[in-house]
């Protein structure tokens, strides 16, 4: 999957960018007791831009994601917190490629179950208050609009789990 243009917020803060993509997963960490309720709340607040978390703290929590991000970063001679690296990983398909390769736990689960983890590029079809109805590849899903408060029908967004994460520039008309 490739994208010709960057997101609307081209110079997004890398910490905020990472946390928005990974916040929905934090619930799984909570279920596994790898983080406690307080940490979960801190991650949520930081993802909303209402708090600050140290990079080292975040790397410790999302250790598997950072193991992969470091590999991506090394290949590009960059820092794992470089926005280009984060975008390549989350927005432009490397995260999905890891899932498709069936690394670790992914190998055990069915494709349908694994698909729930993928980042999708979707079009907003309708907006109902803070919920967006989006569509990709003929699939419709409802996601939370909290991270893209101005999203409206026709906009292109990425979605991860239950959240719309960022707006994408519209594809040029051909």
């Amino acid at each position: 999957m490739s994208v010709s243009a960057g997101p609307a917020a081209e110079r997004a803060d890398p910490v905020l960018y990472f946390l928005r993509y990974s916040y929905p997963c934090a619930f799984v960490l909570l279920q596994q007791r790898r983080i406690d309720e307080d940490t979960y709340r801190l991650i949520r607040l930081a993802a909303l831009g209402k708090g600050h978390l140290e990079k080292g703290f975040i790397e410790g929590i999302f250790s598997a994601a950072f193991r992969r991000l470091r590999m991506v970063a090394e290949g590009r001679g960059k820092d794992p917190w470089d926005l280009d690296v984060l975008q390549a990983y989350f927005r432009d398909g490397l995260h999905n490629a890891c899932i498709d390769r069936g690394e670790g736990m992914y190998a055990r689960f069915s494709e349908g179950f694994r698909d729930l983890c993928k980042v999708r590029h979707a079009t907003v079809v309708a907006r109902h208050a803070d919920v967006l109805e989006v569509e990709y590849d003929g699939t419709r899903r409802r996601v939370v609009a909290e991270f893209v408060p101005d999203a409206k029908p026709g906009d292109r967004v990425t979605i991860h789990h239950t959240y719309a994460i960022e707006k994408l520039r519209k594809r040029p008309r051909s």
Binding site: R34, A64, E103, G104, F109, S110, L116, C117
Partner: peptide
């Protein structure tokens, strides 16, 4: 998402079988 009981139980069994290293492999 909703799951069938069969799929849910299958997924729960997979989590049960996984060792610590595998559990830590996704996020």
């Amino acid at each position: 998402q909703k799951l069938s009981e069969e799929d849910a139980k299958k997924a729960l069994a997979l989590w049960d079988e996984a060792d610590e290293r595998e559990r830590r492999s996704c996020c």
